[in-house]
Design a binder for these strands. Structure first.
Lengths: 191, 191
DNA sequence: CTGCTTTCTTAACATACATCAAAAAATCAC
DNA sequence: GTGATTTTTTGATGTATGTTAAGAAAGCAG
């Protein structure tokens, strides 16, 4: 069962009693996605946060010119969601698509808030998760304003070598904030 | 007393008993900074998180070429710190300077962790704070990779008109990831 | 396997912003 | 208030990356 991946992941960060595990298991629903399937569209009511137990997902938005911009790339044991919409129970600004066939666990905001009360360690887990996510994003922002694209690409691949294998160039380029043509040129030079 | 600004701010987000307020008051130390004073240098042990009750601060790092890059601009009722260093009890990557004369409350990691246990609402407060900070930073990142500097400047000033009054152009430019010369030209066009 | 679609590469040219330099304006220290 | 320092402005020129276009390569459906 895919839920045990989530339990293992949570146990690696905070400790949980058997009863607490039951509360958690009860709060999530599991489902499958095949490759390149849409999970959420901008404008949809953003009801759920998603935990990936297998596969690879991306979130992106579409600008006024109709161009896609990838905001997140996420693999196993990571969360993906339209957080702003989810946390404020409003509509999504971002799309979420699978890149590979994936197994997902989802939780609604109601259930998550209930879980914070039943399982205080979950509040701790999410405080730490958001802390780390904030620090990581702040660093990514520092770099995006400071370093040239070729350096950002080199560091990304060094930190997450998976990405080069599992994510098409077109999405990596978008994640780095450059065009596929530019990334293709960057790759050529480093070859 | 400046600590009451913090208590008011916390009460606006979570509810606190009189006893809990006492725990909080006990955990913080207050001090003053004059204009353009250094609070933390890169390489220092990053011992504290700082809450601004009055004034204006910036955090920045210095790249290999010796150029400053502003990461955060913060006013009253906001936090500023070298979060990575603070949370991992390691050394700071960023500098923190006052822009205006400021009144600051500081808390050490030890005391904060104790506070999480004595005052569970603080864990909730920080979970929500990091949640919001993460969402805001993720949006800023989306924009920095997508929009041109003149649009980012226009939106920044629209969202935080204070900044144009209280922060020198040189630091706003850096915060936007452009040179002062470029921001000066952007301002000229919109005049 | 075969045609169709998507992804990747390459090239010529365009543009946003950086760099360098220097002067004007504002702020600060005494 | 006066000179020194910092900040802002302006101009000339350079560079990283975007845009447009088109073909090559890879992946996919039947």
């Amino acid at each position: 069962m895919s839920i045990s991946s989530l339990i293992d992941h949570l146990q690696s960060k905070v400790s949980l009693s058997a009863l607490e595990e039951e509360h958690i298991k009860y709060a999530f629903e599991e489902f499958q996605l095949h490759k390149k399937q849409r999970l959420l569209s901008a404008g949809d009511h953003s009801r759920y946060a998603y935990f990936i137990t297998k596969g690879c997902m991306r979130s992106f938005f579409i600008d006024e010119k109709g161009v896609e911009h990838v905001s997140q790339l996420a693999f196993e044991n990571h969360w993906i969601s339209d957080l702003h919409g989810f946390l404020t129970s409003s509509s999504a600004t971002h799309f979420i698509d699978s890149i590979e066939a994936s197994t997902i666990l989802r939780i609604s905001l109601d259930r998550l808030e209930k879980l914070y009360l039943d399982v205080p360690a979950m509040e701790r887990y999410f405080r730490q998760l958001f802390q780390s996510a904030y620090v990581a994003t702040a660093r990514r922002l520092d770099k995006s304003l400071t370093e040239t694209a070729d350096i950002r690409y080199a560091k990304l691949i060094k930190e997450q070598p998976d990405i080069a294998q599992r994510v098409p160039l077109i999405h990596i380029a978008s994640y780095l904030g450059i065009t596929p043509e530019s990334l293709s040129r960057i790759r050529k030079v480093n070859r």
